[in-house]
Amino acid sequence: MSGNPSRSRIGFASRLGFGASGIGTLYRDVSEAQAADVLTKAYDGGMRYFDSAPLYGHGLSEHRLGSFLRTIDRKTVTVSTKVGRYMVPPYGEMVNYGLWASPLRLKPVFDYSYAGTMRSLEQSASRLGIADFDLIYIHDVDRFTYGDAYERRFNEAIEGCYRALDDLRKAGHIKAIGIGVNEGDVATRFVKACSLDAVMMAGRYTLLDRGAEADLLPEAKRQGVEIVVAGVFNSGILAAGPGNSGTTFDYGAPPDDVVIRAKAIEAICNRYGVPLQAAAIQFPFRNPQVSAAVLGMSRPERIAQNLGWAELSIPDELWGEIEQLFEPVRR
């Protein structure tokens, strides 16, 4: 498939995006008032890209984001959500709510079929209160989620999910199609298999983990596909710092080699008087293929903090020293 860099449909309203998983009560409960406050502060601070998903709080995140969107001019923001799951009443069935502290008591159903995709989007439109979407990501079609069933799910997503979204894009009902996964080779496979506008890559193009450099970034450049990075803190280790005893990497205990590399990066940042978090937020934008970075936040005070880190001046020498840490890995 030939690439066409000029076909981008997205035009993100801001490069720094608000990831709405936190207001869906990821890890901790968040009140309605707090969710409204953090969304307002993000918008007032200049964040104009908002991303959610049906999974986040089992619909709660989209509900809360939708309430906020009805208070502003829709034309001022970019809104994205995801497909691959829809919600149903559990009717007495036990539901594993996983990392969500206080979600809606609904059961997620995986479905990458054409009809399932349409059903997912209809539910999202109702929760968000909008009829048009700037960007829809096909969500979590990866080995981590599906294990041995990955190959079957990939084919389902191409034949069902992508075909439905492509029809909607051709009809002008959605502007752009993306894939949202945590595995670079899986994202690369999607980029080669269908005409995508964007890839949301979580955790694989960060200050600490450059996995996407091997396959995804070169292929995305060839195909003219924009990159949206998520998980810039690698789930915690670059936010709390590698010395924190409770820190996580990819939602689990960090391996020893990751801790060693993180401490080396932190030492470089300390020598230049640059917060580790600022370097983590700014690193992906050093690659021109990256159009936006999505930060998950649920506490109002984090908005100003993250915006400040995003604007902090960082000397080129710091980046040069960090690059040297990765040279042995590249060789």
Rank of each mutant, 00 (worst) to 15 (best):
D29Q: 11
G46N: 13
P54F: 10
L69D: 05
V30G: 00
L39M: 09
S61C: 07
V38K: 01
S21P: 03
F68L: 07
S80N: 09
P54H: 10
R28W: 03
V83S: 10
L26W: 07
G19Q: 07
E62F: 10
S31E: 06
D37V: 04
T76A: 14
G17F: 06
T25V: 02
Y56M: 06
G19Y: 01
K41D: 04
Y27V: 09
G46L: 12
H58C: 09
T25R: 08
G59F: 13
T40M: 03
G46S: 13
S21H: 04
A42R: 02
F68E: 03
K41T: 02
Y43K: 00
G17S: 13
G59M: 13
V79L: 14
A53R: 07
F18R: 04
G59V: 12
T40N: 09
H63L: 14
G57T: 07
V38S: 08
G17Y: 01
P54V: 09
Y49Q: 05
G24P: 03
K75S: 13
T76Q: 15
S80W: 04
R70F: 07
G66L: 05
G66H: 05
M47H: 05
S21C: 10
L39H: 00
I23H: 06
D29M: 07
G24R: 04
L26F: 12
D51E: 14
R70L: 11
S31Y: 11
A53M: 08
R70N: 14
Y56T: 04
G66Q: 03
S61K: 09
R15E: 15
H63V: 14
K41E: 06
E62D: 11
Y27S: 12
R15G: 14
D51Q: 08
Q34W: 01
L60I: 12
Y56A: 03
G66M: 04
S21E: 15
S67E: 15
R64N: 11
F18A: 01
G19W: 06
L60Y: 14
